[in-house]
Design a protein around this nucleic acid. Structure first.
Lengths: 342, 342
DNA sequence: CTGTTAGCGCATTCAT
DNA sequence: ATGAATGCGCTAACAG
């Protein structure tokens, strides 16, 4: 009785199915059916029920619903960073893929820290997600085990240079590095410098670097100077590191960057310092960001499609609830964009 | 019996508190207490239980936990876009503010569509979040009502030019527009052009525009040419629209942009077209993005602190579970960055 | 087409 | 310091 009264006055007290059912003079199940859009209900009752739903401002409790149906409709997403523009782009692809399904993404960020990733994955699995989309292939043993044993679909995205837990969507960063170096060698460059960020933390940037180095080695060459910084990737760092490497190694003929942000900064340094690009010094990025194409000289780079990686990753998990016998690998590829800086 | 056996073989079947309790020979409540870090348990039992937790790979089900405790520990976040870099930056601030608490953010994107926002908010509230952080102050009537009646803390972030439902964190975009125009007038500019995106959809860009226009009007001036595009904000669009407006109105002396992305594109056009900045044409942006400062000529702009907006928004909801009598307004401010382009 | 009956997995009294 | 009982709000058989 007291509780009853409270229900009517306390704005925060939740309206439940039973409240709606009682007022509409039907059973709970009927309300539940209607709310879930099942079509085996009489049009008349549906309308009556919907009217009281609106009158009471009833919002179904998905927590209770998920518990009862053992389906949370959640898709866990684990990314290393939000400050590197490529990850928001992947999130856009994921959202696009999820659009129209009844699934919701829950995003967690690891800051490129594998221990943090472990915590984040544990917390995510606690929500009983229908699937987990996780950036990268390198995890702690515990993370690996949790993901394997969870039984849910797991897509490791960004890279495909490994045997996935369940599925992988992305491209080979090693091959991308090789392709970049080969392209630049073909164009006649011989004296290479490297400007990057993240060091050991961004394994994928490292793989591209290794790919380039291996390709150069085959040609009897090596990077003559390198500049690698910590933390996040920024245009400002690219500019500063380029200034630094130009001072230390003035005779390079091409600078390869871990990514476009850094390369754009490199170009800005050259503009300011009066270095003619690509005649005095050529620049080559990685990612194919929008900004690179809008520069006074379009940036030479390797394009990869982040949006598509996100979208395809979702498609893989939507394709089936259970893991396939054979792990799935989707190669979204990459392509050289010639541009005007190399 | 059959179910029992399934539990042991089927990797997907979940381990529950009861499984752990039975194996560790304690009651469910004891396991529950331990998992929640309550300290009124004997060290010996705790260790025994934790050992079986690890052995079974038990992960507590937060859905069940939330239902039982009526606390989801979720914070709903509603943003219009992921492609505009300012929103990922705000998300970083939100994550930073949430770090260490036991709260998790759940992000939804509206694409600047108020009807979509309504759907998204309804879906979010279904998860019984402890709070909702939502960009902007303009909502449909239904959205407004849902948020009001939800009883949870609601922070509208980005703008503070309105009476909030509960709290607002951000700054006055109108004032920012006025400040920009006043600054440029003081520096002697008289013939203004405007380059923007989003049209009616990005209300905040519109507010800044209106602020500028009002300030110009006071000085007996007006924008002599304008170029506004649809869709998302990109450097490429800024460049194209600047080219367009320069062709149509060659005698302007300053171009104001809806934001830095567009302004950077504008600068790129000028570089390519041999227009001397700021002598032939001055450029003024908005946001204070990293890239603007790394340009050969630092971009003149208004800086606003997105990270802080996210962080402060979280602080407001962490400050208390119930809405204060008086709605809270946090002004994170903005500042003119002189730069070298105006 | 609609109602009844049982849980989903856990947190929370209240005992002991 | 630990256990037993109750219910969070909803969905899923199963009846009718």
């Amino acid at each position: 009785m007291a509780k009853q009264r409270q229900r009517l006055t306390d704005r925060k007290s939740k309206v439940t199915v039973s409240d709606v059912a009682r007022m509409a003079e039907v059973s709970d199940s009927t309300v539940s059916r209607i709310m879930r859009g099942q079509d085996l209900v009489a049009e008349a009752t549906r309308e009556r029920v919907m009217a009281t739903v609106r009158a009471l401002g009833y919002v179904p409790n998905r927590i209770a619903g998920s518990l009862a149906s053992l389906d949370s409709r959640l898709v866990g997403v684990v990314i290393p960073s939000l400050s590197n523009i490529v990850f928001p782009e992947i999130l856009q692809g994921i959202n696009a893929g999820l659009e129209g399904t009844h699934r919701q993404s829950v995003i967690s960020v690891t800051d490129y820290d594998l221990d943090k990733e472990e915590v984040v994955v544990r917390n995510l699995l606690a929500w009983q997600p229908a699937a987990v989309l996780i950036a990268g292939s390198m995890h702690t043993e515990a993370t690996q085990r949790m993901l394997e044993n969870s039984g849910v679909r797991v897509v490791e995205f960004m890279e495909i240079d490994h045997k996935p837990i369940d599925a992988a969507v992305g491209f080979s960063h090693l091959s991308a590095g090789v392709a970049a170096a080969r392209h630049l060698l073909q164009r006649g460059y011989r004296r290479f410098g490297y400007v990057g960020y993240g060091g050991e933390k961004d394994r994928r940037a490292l793989m591209r670097y290794k790919g380039m180095r291996a390709c150069l080695a085959e040609a009897g060459l090596a990077f003559e100077a390198e500049s690698v910084s910590d933390g996040q990737t920024t245009v400002a760092k690219g500019r500063a590191q380029t200034a630094d490497i130009c001072a230390r190694a003035p005779d390079l003929d091409v600078l390869t960057f871990s990514n476009d942000d850094m390369a754009v900064g490199g170009l800005f340094h050259c503009m300011s310092a009066g270095i003619s690009v690509p005649n005095d010094l050529a620049l080559f990025g990685f990612n194919g960001l929008d900004i690179g194409r809008a520069l006074p000289q379009p940036l030479s780079t390797i394009r990869a499609n982040r949006f598509e990686i996100g979208k395809r990753a979702v498609e893989v998990v939507l394709a089936g609830e259970t893991r396939p016998e054979q792990s799935v690998i989707v190669d979204t590829g990459f392509e050289i964009f010639e541009g005007a800086t190399a």
